[in-house]
Design a protein around this nucleic acid. Structure first.
Lengths: 130, 130
DNA sequence: ACATAATAATACTATTTTGGTATTATTCAA
DNA sequence: TTGAATAATACCAAAATAGTATTATTATGT
């Protein structure tokens, strides 16, 4: 079981790589080579980051991606949410039904409690700190 | 993302159902009907429980499964391990390689720390308590 | 203006994990 | 000795994750 998925991990690496090139824009091919991630996949991730997140893109020759937010203002959780959805341990096993005694289901309580612990722990973790 | 998987959940229900029939053995069809889980799947789970765990089976007519350990001596973790493997949040994204700076990778540290928290929290949870 | 080098958008394919089924062999007891 | 049960194992299906390919659009240098 994975707390962070491959895409999230790549996204973090990509953000860090871009941050190392201040003042200019990073092209997907460049990032691909540098990080050893397939170009097409890098692009896919860059698109998500540009649409929902802390990058802007410029098209055309000499174009590429630029950070709009410094790494120490980008939260890990937000990247996780972009690529994996909200942090949750309880992802409904049964889509609400079947378990009639959900409210009193102590296993569920434990899971929710642990979920809270995780959320709390990573709440303030920035990309810069990684 | 799920802390416990469907099989684990079913296994717990099955154990509890069997415990409610003390002194006699429970047949898979009976459990299937009672819990609304497909027979074949119940059997598969029962087999694992009988092989690695806290059940014995008797074959032939009137056979079925019987608890060999009371529910308050069966740990949730052990059931989880049977059906999902060891509790872990870091399941290798890259099979050891790629991330050269693993030792100092602070994300990994956070994940391992949280993993420890989870382990600690569920360490003593028994099936009886659920 | 136009060609070209870049990204944008999206749809598709592949792999892995999880969930579930089916089939055949074995065992026990009436 | 036969039939009702489990044992064992191999198979199939759906969903999630990982990755690719294809086509459209945009911007810039000449």
């Amino acid at each position: 079981m994975k707390l962070i998925t491959r895409e999230t991990d790549y996204a973090i690496r990509i953000l860090k790589a871009i941050a190392e090139k201040p003042g200019r824009s990073a092209a997907s091919i460049e990032l691909s080579k540098e990080l050893g991630i397939p170009v097409a996949f890098v692009r896919k991730i860059l698109q998500v980051l540009a649409r929902k997140g802390p990058l802007t893109s410029t098209k055309g020759k000499g174009g590429g991606f630029v950070l709009t937010t410094p790494l120490d203002k980008i939260l890990l959780v937000d990247i996780m949410i972009m690529f994996q959805g909200p942090v949750s341990l309880g992802d409904c096993l049964f889509g609400k039904k079947l378990c009639g005694n959900r409210a009193s289901c102590s296993l569920r309580c434990i899971i929710l409690e642990l979920e809270g612990t995780i959320r709390e722990r990573i709440k303030n973790v920035t990309i810069a700190s990684l």
